[in-house]
Design a protein around this nucleic acid. Sequence first.
DNA 1: ACACTCGCATACAGTCTGCATGTTTCCTTT
DNA 2: AAAGGAAACATGCAGACTGTATGCGAGTGT
Lengths: 214, 214
Amino acid sequence: MQERRSNRERTEEMRGRLIAAARVLFVDKGYADTGTPEIVAAAGVTRGALYHHFADKQALFRAVVEAEAAAVAAAIEDAAAAGAAESTSGAIPAAPGDGMRSLVAGARAYLAAMAVPGRTRLLLVEAPAVLGAPEVRAIDGGHAERTLRAGLEEAIAAGDLCALPLPALTSLLSALFDRAALDAAAEGDAGAAMTVIEALLAGLAPLAARRENG
Amino acid sequence: MQERRSNRERTEEMRGRLIAAARVLFVDKGYADTGTPEIVAAAGVTRGALYHHFADKQALFRAVVEAEAAAVAAAIEDAAAAGAAESTSGAIPAAPGDGMRSLVAGARAYLAAMAVPGRTRLLLVEAPAVLGAPEVRAIDGGHAERTLRAGLEEAIAAGDLCALPLPALTSLLSALFDRAALDAAAEGDAGAAMTVIEALLAGLAPLAARRENG
DNA sequence: ACACTCGCATACAGTCTGCATGTTTCCTTT
DNA sequence: AAAGGAAACATGCAGACTGTATGCGAGTGT
C-alpha cells in the first residue's frame, strides 16, 4: 500500500520533517525546554528515526542552525547581486564614499534577512548558548564575518574609513548589527536602528571625506 | 559538638555556599551541562538544602546572576565616584566635550568591571539564554541601561553628541560594550576594542565639536 | 519547658536522553 | 528474480536528572 521510495528520498524527507518540526519548537520554547518526544510527535515519527539520523539532540539543533545560516547567506548574496545590478553596471571606478554606501547597503541586507520570524532567536540567542559562539562562527563558515571584514578593509583602503584595528572593528560592528536585528525583531521596525547605524558609520569616515559627502 | 548558630546565620551561609559553588560550575560548564547533584556535591550539602532555599535550578541560577550583576553595578559606581573625585572637584561647568569624555570613562569602567573571570559568560551568554534578555534587564533593574541612557541624553543636550533616537542608540551602544567585554575576555586585552569604541563615539560628535576637540 | 516553625536530609515519582535490539524496506549481486 | 545484506526506522531499556513529599533535628516564641 505504500508507494515505493528510494532510500535517498526517504532520508531526505525524514531529515526535512525533523528539522522543520524542531525549528518550530526551538523557536517557540527554546532548546532546553524542547524535548525529543515533543519534536518527533510534531514530525509524526518516533524517536528512533531522530536518533538514526542525528547523533543526539544537539546535532539536530545544529542542523537547524546550519539550514538557517545558509538561508541568511543566500538572502544576503541575492541582495548583493541585486544591488550590484541596480547600480550603474560596468567597471565602477569606486567613487569616494562608495565604500561606506556599500557597508550601509550590507547592513540593510543583513537586517532584512534576519527579519524572518524566529531567525534572531535561533541564530543570535539559542545557538551561541547551545553550541558556543566559536562553533556558530564555524557553521557560518566565517561567511558573515569575512564579508564585513572585506568591506571594511576596502573602505579603509579607499580612504572612506579611518584606519582602525580591523579584527576589533569587525567584531564590534557585527555586534552592532546583531543587536539591531534583535531590536528590530522585538519592535517590528528597523528604522531607528538603521538611523543610528548610518550615523555611526558616517562618523567613522575621515573628516575630509565627511565634509565632502556630508 | 556543633557551635550553636542562629537560623539567620545558617540560611545566609547555606545560600552563600550554594551560590558560590553554582557560580563556579555554571561558569565552567554552562547552565545546561551542570546538574544539581554536582552543585550540591561541590557545596558539600544535599539537594534537599538546595530545594529548600530555591524554587528550582533556574532560581538558583538567577540568584547567581543577581549577585554578579550587583557586583558589576557596585564596581562601576565605585569607578564613577573615583573619577568624579579625581577631576577638579567643585561645581563643574560642563566643559564642551565633557559629555563624550564621561561616556568613554563609563565604557572603560564597564570593561574593567566585566574583566572578572567568568563574568562575561554568566551575564552575557548564559543569562540571556536561560532567563531571556528582558528578564536579565529587569534583574539589573535597568541600572546599566539607565546610566548609559542618561549619559547619552546629557551629551546630546550639551551639544557634544548629534541627536539620534535615544532608545536605539542606547541599545546599540550597549551591545557594542557587551561585545567589547566578550572580546576582551577572550583575548585578554581590551585595548583594540577601546580604540574602536573611542573612534565610534568621537564620530558621533557634531562636526563643529569635532573640529574643536580633534 | 512546651509547642511550633524552620532548616535540611532522605525517599520517591515522573520525565528525559541515548543506546541496544528488533523489524521492515530497499539495494545489490548473481 | 531470488537471496543476502545494508539501510531506514520502531520498540524497549538503563541511567540520570528534576522536583516534591516525607521525616528528623535544631532553633524560636511564649
